[in-house]
Simulated assay, not measured.
Amino acid sequence: MKSGDGTSKGVGACEEALQRLLVGKPVVPEHVALDLSKLTASIVSLEAGFDRGYLKKSRKAHLPLLAQIEAVRAEASKGAGSSSGKKIRQMESQLAALEKTLSIAQMQRDNVLAQNMMLWQRVRELEHSMAYSRSGHSAKVESLLHSDKGMTFTSA
């Protein structure tokens, strides 16, 4: 774009793109949740709809915008040290909570498996007694049906 009007339209588009990136509302999907410490002129150019090399230091009209991009990146990098420590602590806390949830789920699973095994065993005993009762021994079936064999079940 050789005309001054065209250049200012391009810079304006890049300025709008930079603002979208700063407020976290980019139009390019790859720029969603962009870490501002990684902001570059090529990212702003792409967000504005141009190729990666649109913004250049050799173009005087681009210098203020390039300086602004650099300032944003430097500020974000400076604050990244304290925020990364905070992120690590937050992630460690989330990990501890997930480990606790996993442990509870494993205990519940083990309890349910034990109950299922006891139920399976009881069904096998009843099946055997039913087969035995068909041969004329109904008293044995009655006693098995009414006994609980000391089993208690709890909900998981």
Rank of each mutant, 00 (worst) to 15 (best):
L21I: 13
I43T: 04
G24W: 09
K25C: 13
P26G: 15
S129L: 09
G53V: 00
G4W: 02
I69A: 15
G79K: 15
Q106F: 03
S143Q: 12
D51F: 06
L18S: 14
L55P: 02
K78G: 02
V44L: 09
L63F: 00
G53D: 02
Q121M: 06
M130A: 14
Q19P: 01
V32D: 01
L36A: 07
I69P: 10
K9E: 13
L39V: 01
S103M: 04
Q106P: 01
S3L: 08
G10P: 04
H31M: 05
S129Y: 05
T101C: 02
V112I: 11
L55S: 05
M118Y: 06
K86P: 00
L126R: 13
S143E: 12
E47L: 07
G81K: 15
S8W: 10
E30M: 06
V11A: 00
L55Y: 13
G4S: 09
A96Q: 13
K140P: 01
L98Q: 09
H146S: 13
A80D: 07
A67H: 12
R109I: 04
E125W: 12
A41P: 01
D148F: 03
P26A: 15
E92G: 00
V28S: 12
R89Q: 09
E47A: 07
A33E: 00
L18W: 04
T101H: 08
G6L: 08
R122F: 07
Q19M: 10
K2Y: 11
L46E: 14
A80L: 13
A61E: 15
S82F: 07
S42T: 12
L119K: 15
Q115C: 03
V112P: 02
E125G: 02
K56Y: 09
G136F: 01
L119S: 03
N116K: 11
E99A: 06
Q115A: 14
V32Q: 10
A131T: 04
K78A: 11
F153D: 02
L95W: 03
R73C: 07
L22N: 09
M117F: 05
E75L: 13
I104K: 08
D51Q: 10
L36Y: 08
I88A: 02
I104H: 04
E142N: 10
A48W: 01
L22S: 11
S77P: 00
A13V: 02
G53N: 11
G150V: 03
V72R: 15
L102P: 00
T7C: 05
K9D: 09
S103A: 14
M151W: 06
G150W: 07
L63Q: 15
S147R: 08
G85R: 15
Q106W: 05
M117H: 08
